[in-house]
Structures are given as C-alpha cells and as structure tokens.
Design a binder for these strands. Structure first.
Lengths: 132, 132
DNA sequence: AAGATTAGGACTAATAACGTCCTATACTTC
DNA sequence: GAAGTATAGGACGTTATTAGTCCTAATCTT
C-alpha cells in the first residue's frame, strides 16, 4: 500500500495541530479527537518530531506543536517522516535491487510514476487541506 | 507497496509473450528466461488466464499465449488481474472502511491520486513497452 | 518532591507478500 | 489407449511489513 495507516494517522494529527485553537496538544487529546490508538500515536509524534515537523515539550501542560507554518508542510514531508518515501516498487526506489533495471523497459515507467506521485503529494500542503 | 513483485513478474511474462518469436511459451521456458520461480509463475499465469489476458493449452507442446493484441493490454489490466487494482490507501478503495471519509479533507487527495495513477498505468500498453 | 508528560527501545499480533507442494485434469503423440 | 507432458487449483508454509502494546527512563511544571 502506498499510504500506510501510520502515515494516514500522522496526516490527521498534523491537521489537528494546524487548527487555530490547538496550538499545543498532548497525545491523549489528539488520540481522542482523531480516533488514533494512544500509544501508537505517541510513536508517530516521535517520528514527526525527529523529522522536525513538530516540537515537543514535556511535563505538565506539555504536548506537541507544529514547528513550521502549515503552508510549508506537505503530505510528502509527512510521508517521508513516517515511511521514508513513497514505495511504488522495489526497483523504482533502489535500482541495485533490480539487476534488470538497465534492460527492463518497464523500469522507467515506475520511476516516472513515482516522480508524479511525489510531485502531487508535495503540492498538497497542510494549509490548503486545513482550509476545507 | 503499490506494485507487488507478483505484478512485476506478470508484466515481465506478458512482455515475453509479446515478443514475436514467442507466440506460445510454457511455464518452464518463461520461468528460465525471465528469472521467475516456476511454481509461482504457474499461479500468475492462472490469474492472467482467468482475467482473459492469456489463453492456455495443455498437454505436450502446450503453454500460454496472449489472447489479445499487445496494443490493448495495459499495465493497469495486468495489475488488476493480479492485485485487483491499485491500493493507494484503504479509504480510497473502500470508503466504507473509513467512517471519516465524509469529514476528512485528505480523502479527496487519495482518490485523486489513485485516479491519476490508474490513468497513467492505462496509457502504458504492452506494445509501447515491447518496442523499447 | 509529586504529578504529568514525552522518549525510546523491546516486544507482540495481525496481515499481506512471496513462494512451494500435491493431486487432478486435459491434451498430444506414439 | 497408454505414456508422457502440461496446465488447474487448492492447501500449505515462510518471511516481511504493518499495526499496535508495554515498560522504564527522562524531563518539565507546580
């Protein structure tokens, strides 16, 4: 699957943080509002934090907030933070894993498709999505 | 993953059959030439046959041949025969599995992406690919 | 110091991908 | 019509990925 459930959850919680009234939110809150298993969500936030998309603060009244404006966070950014990029096909990602890539006439199709998908995901920024 | 190994194998063997000198070929032959595990390939051919992309003949000198001209077989056809369509995201395929799809502002993005991917895969016909 | 919250690794469960094996069935040739 | 060759199809096994839990430590606020 191109988009895993984890990525889907991640998008939801970034969107939640982007709402004006939720500048900072903790795991419990986001978990309840967005219907995401709490412990799983904690992991997701960790990855988003390591990728620099959100910042955390611990202790009482702690939680997470976006570390960039929504206009510069794209679906691609989130996906890369969680899954490490879109996986169309093994040989499109790492041509070393496909010895035939030089011979294979289909290979360029996968590469092309991947580029197009990435382009589209990059276009979709959080501010655009949050406006709907 | 959008394109599974099984689909990838299927594309390879359809391409092989499309070569002029291979009007009919048996599992053993295709397996050797295309580097696909033999028993696995047999399964793949079965699916392609059920989808009407290839025809089989049994017994001595039997094997498989394309049942349509290469110009009307697309990558999408092959993918649908093997995987049953492109799986971008659960909720893009079956909106019943995503109760939030009515509310969710990201949902249309997945649907759109899926349509674009399908469109591109449909454009790529076997005759185009075989020519390279 | 107490309570609340994230950090991070180890672990488990479920699902899908990948592939094998065995028996039945059909066709060709001698 | 018997022997040999090939596909048909279901059951099964294996591995990888996805999804999610749990526990302990570290940090911050009051």
């Amino acid at each position: 699957m191109l988009i895993t459930k984890e990525t889907d959850y991640a998008v939801r919680c970034i969107l939640y943080l982007a709402q004006a009234d939720a500048q900072i939110a903790n795991v419990t809150e986001v978990s309840r509002k967005m219907h995401i298993p709490k412990t799983f969500l904690a992991k997701i936030f960790q990855r988003l934090a390591r990728a620099g998309l959100v910042e955390s603060s611990r202790g009482m009244n702690g939680g997470f907030r976006l570390s960039k404006p929504p206009s510069v966070i794209s679906l691609l950014d989130i996906m890369e933070a969680i899954q490490g990029g879109s996986c169309i096909n093994v040989c499109a990602v790492d041509s070393k894993k496909c010895r035939r890539s030089a011979v294979c006439s289909v290979h360029p199709v996968w590469v092309n498709l991947r580029e197009e998908v990435n382009r589209r995901l990059q276009e979709q920024t959080i501010d655009k999505l949050a406006r709907r």
